[in-house]
Amino acid sequence: MQPEDLQSLVTTAMPYGKYKGRLIADLPGAYLAWYARKGFPPGRLGSLLALALELDHNGLKRLLDPLRPK
Rank of each mutant, 00 (worst) to 15 (best):
R68P: 02
W34H: 13
M1P: 14
Y31M: 10
L67E: 03
L45R: 02
L6P: 14
V10T: 14
M14F: 03
R62D: 08
P28A: 05
V10S: 11
V10D: 14
A13C: 10
G39Q: 02
T11Q: 05
K61I: 06
P15C: 07
A52W: 00
A30K: 14
K20F: 00
L49W: 00
A36V: 00
R44N: 08
A30Y: 12
M14C: 09
D56R: 13
L27K: 13
L55N: 03
V10P: 13
G43L: 05
R37L: 09
P3L: 03
V10Q: 12
L27F: 06
A50G: 10
M1L: 08
M1F: 13
A36E: 10
L63E: 09
L45Y: 00
N58E: 15
G59W: 01
P42D: 13
E4D: 12
K61H: 06
T11Y: 00
R22S: 04
S47M: 05
R44F: 03
L67Q: 04
R22C: 01
D26V: 12
T11D: 04
P3C: 01
K70V: 13
K38I: 08
L23P: 11
L6F: 14
K61T: 11
G43P: 01
F40Q: 08
P3F: 06
A30Q: 13
P69M: 07
G17H: 04
K38F: 04
D65Y: 04
T11C: 01
A25E: 12
E54G: 04
G39A: 01
A13N: 06
H57E: 11
R68G: 04
R62M: 06
L55S: 05
P69Q: 10
T11E: 07
L23V: 08
K38R: 15
L32S: 04
D56F: 09
R62V: 07
R37M: 08
G39C: 01
E54L: 03
G21L: 09
E4L: 15
N58T: 14
M1V: 12
T11L: 03
L6H: 12
G17D: 01
L60R: 15
P66V: 10
W34E: 10
L67V: 03
K61F: 02
K38T: 13
L60F: 09
P69N: 09
Y19C: 02
R62E: 09
H57R: 14
Y35L: 15
L23I: 08
E4G: 11
A50K: 05
Q7H: 14
A25M: 07
